Simulated scan of single mutants.
Amino acid sequence: MTSPFQNTILNGDCIEMMRKLDRASVDFILTDPPYITRYRGRDGRTVINDDNPRWLKPAFNQMHRVLKYGSFCLSFYGWNKVDLFMDAWRSAGFDIVGHIIFRKQYASSSRFLRYSHEQAYLLAKGDARPPAQPISDVIDFNYTGNRLHPTQKPVQALRPLIESFCKPGGLVLDPFCGSGSTLAAARDTGRNWLGIELSQEHFETATKRLNNERMAAA
């Protein structure tokens, strides 16, 4: 099935919004959900729903439902809450098929160690075929300055993931789209995209970003 929601951003709770999508209507999910770490940036900004795990299982249940059989979901996660994420992924029905390290040239924080990487798991729904040319499980992460979002991801690091795990013209979903980096990467690589964002502020930022970049490319 083809989703009627394409190349747009929805403002609202992603669990409720995904319930409006047809089953098996999404080709690839690439998302950076709250890490459940009560994150607070140096500028004091926080991430909505980062203080509780209530949304975690229902959200991934819906992601599994809307994803096509044999397709992939790539999810960032908080390393010190990996038990909660693993339980949610497995409970939803995902198979865990890979792990990616995003290597940063800076430390986002220092305590017991200097934390200079991000991480994500590659999840599969059903019998997913490996890509013809697998990409490296270590990807360089350029600093975005977090100007648009407190945990903003660099578009250039997301493009190869979309190219590897979603066919051209396919639909990429990001249920926690923040400032829209996943959506920009999908558009840049010739894929359709759908974002969902709970925060009104970030929804407006992502919408403006995608609209401005779309007009600039026209």
Rank of each mutant, 00 (worst) to 15 (best):
K104N: 09
R40E: 15
Q200S: 11
Q152W: 08
R191K: 12
G145V: 07
F76R: 11
E16I: 01
S25E: 00
K167F: 10
P130I: 04
I48Y: 07
A186C: 07
R159L: 10
L198R: 12
S116E: 11
L173K: 10
S71V: 01
I196H: 03
R65I: 02
G170F: 01
N211Q: 14
V82Y: 08
F85T: 09
L10A: 02
C166I: 09
E163S: 13
D127T: 13
N142E: 12
G190V: 12
S75A: 15
T144Q: 01
D27N: 12
I101A: 12
T205Q: 12
D140M: 02
Q119S: 15
L173Y: 08
A24E: 15
W55G: 03
P134F: 03
H99A: 13
R187K: 12
L56E: 04
H149R: 02
R40N: 01
N142G: 06
I36E: 10
L123R: 04
H117K: 05
P175K: 07
I139R: 03
F85S: 07
T8Q: 14
W55F: 04
E204L: 12
H149G: 10
T8V: 13
T189E: 06
F76A: 11
L210Y: 09
S136K: 10
R114S: 15
F94H: 08
I96Y: 07
L198V: 02
I36H: 11
D140T: 08
D188A: 15
G180C: 10
W193H: 12
Y77N: 07
H202T: 00
R103V: 10
T182G: 05
S3I: 09
G44Y: 11
Q6W: 02
S116P: 09
P34E: 11
R191T: 05
F28E: 00
F165P: 03
Q119A: 13
R19V: 00
A92H: 09
Q6S: 07
V97F: 10
E201T: 12
K81N: 15
K20S: 12
R19S: 14
I100Y: 14
Q156F: 02
D87H: 14
W55C: 04
T31H: 03
P34C: 10
F76E: 09
F141D: 03
T189Q: 00
P34F: 05
R45I: 10
S91I: 04
R45P: 08
L10I: 15
L194C: 13
A92F: 11
C166V: 11
L161F: 08
N7Q: 06
K81W: 06
A184D: 04
R114H: 13
D127H: 13
D22R: 04
K104E: 06
A184G: 04
H202M: 05
L122I: 15
I36G: 01
Y121D: 02
S199W: 09
Q62I: 09
A216H: 11
M18E: 04
R147Y: 06
A59D: 01
F203M: 03
T144G: 01
V97C: 14
T31K: 00
A217Q: 12
L161C: 11
E204C: 06
N80E: 14
A157Y: 06
I9Y: 03
G190R: 13
A184Y: 00
F141G: 01
T207V: 00
R129D: 08
H64Q: 05
G145R: 07
K68D: 01
Q133G: 02
F85C: 07
R54Y: 09
S25Y: 05
F94Q: 10
A157E: 05
F76Y: 15
K57E: 14
